[in-house]
């Protein structure tokens, strides 16, 4: 599971601190070095780690912590609080349009999981809210992208709108009209994967956004992403103003520090997670769960009780 290694590392770091009664400022800094290492090994962005550790250290060397009889416990609490704050507050949902179909635009780097998870999300919306989604093939570049969308549409029994290799902006506009005429109250735009530094293709996304005014623009991010997560997410957010993030491939064993980085860099919530290749493998994102997972809250709580 993601983050397992990180929580082990943090536990180890705090076990060391726990041995002592009172902590000196130097002890705190020593513990924070291990926190820093663990976060970096989990692929949390270098800058986010720096800020995070600085903030936590500041709070931890505050007089009340050092004077407390159980400083280790205090530090664990603080790290947990700060991490939860960084992951975002309550869990965020999709916004539905007040008028007309809800338009969800899936964007992201190549191979992140847009097509698969757009379809999964459409299925989830139908299951949960009785929606009547339409999948739209706006990827006119990747070989067999349209076939792929048609196959997953068929597996889910959700209609797919396609116009072959036409202009993606035009396809999106026509799809929305089609949805209005056919009673589809949700439209999922499957856009082509692209690099955040590809100006022409980023302009294409801006044009689609301007043309159909999506209700939600979701950035799809691979949980295995390393330090580049911040660059890519910031660039997509600056260009489009994303509304949220869908984190994929969480069924792997990547620690998924990208989740923290993206949240810190863009301030946008992670709304869903992909947990497998099958089309029902999608879940709501729970920041508190994720933060607990990072810190191994199970262990942490028993530790706090004992401390």
């Amino acid at each position: 599971m993601a983050f397992e290694g990180l929580s082990e590392k943090l536990n180890a770091a705090f076990k060391k601190l726990r041995g002592k009664g009172r902590l000196t400022e130097a002890d705190v800094r020593e513990g924070m070095r291990e926190v820093r290492l663990a976060l970096l090994e989990a692929d949390v962005s270098y800058k986010v780690v720096k800020d995070f550790v600085a903030q936590v250290t500041d709070r931890c060397v505050g007089a009340d912590v050092l004077d407390s009889l159980t400083p280790g416990q205090q530090i664990v609490k603080i790290v947990n609080e700060e991490l939860t704050a960084l992951m975002g507050g309550s869990n965020a949902r999709l916004t539905f349009a007040s008028k007309g179909p809800t338009i969800v635009m899936m964007v992201g780097l190549q191979g992140a999981g847009k097509t698969t998870n757009g379809a999964k999300l459409a299925g989830l919306m139908r299951r949960q809210f009785g929606k009547r989604p339409l999948l739209v093939a706006c990827d006119v570049y990747r070989p067999a992208a349209i076939n792929q969308l048609q196959v997953v549409g068929k597996q889910l029994d959700i209609p797919v709108f396609e116009m072959g290799q036409a202009d993606p902006v035009h396809i999106a506009e026509e799809a929305v009209k089609y949805a209005r005429d056919h009673g589809n109250d949700m439209v999922f735009l499957d856009t082509a994967g692209r690099l955040h530094i590809d100006e022409a293709l980023m302009d294409e996304l801006k044009a689609i956004k301007a043309a159909v005014k999506p209700t939600e623009i979701l950035l799809v991010v691979d949980a295995m992403t390393g330090q580049d997560a911040v660059n890519a997410a910031s660039a997509f957010d600056e260009a489009l103003g994303i509304d949220g993030v869908l984190l994929t491939k969480l069924d792997g064993d990547a620690r998924g520090g990208a989740a923290l980085s993206i949240r810190a860099a863009t301030g946008k919530p992670i709304k869903f997670v992909g947990t497998g290749e099958k089309l029902d493998m999608i879940e709501l994102f729970h920041p508190e769960r994720m933060a607990s997972r990072i810190l191994g809250m199970g262990d942490m709580l028993t530790f706090i009780e004992k401390a």
Binding site: E41, D43, M224, Q227, A232, A254, R255
Partner: peptide, 11 residues
């Protein structure tokens, strides 16, 4: 291996 992959690449 995708160049955007972080430490999981080694695993």
């Amino acid at each position: 291996l995708d160049a955007t992959t972080g430490q999981n690449g080694l695993i």
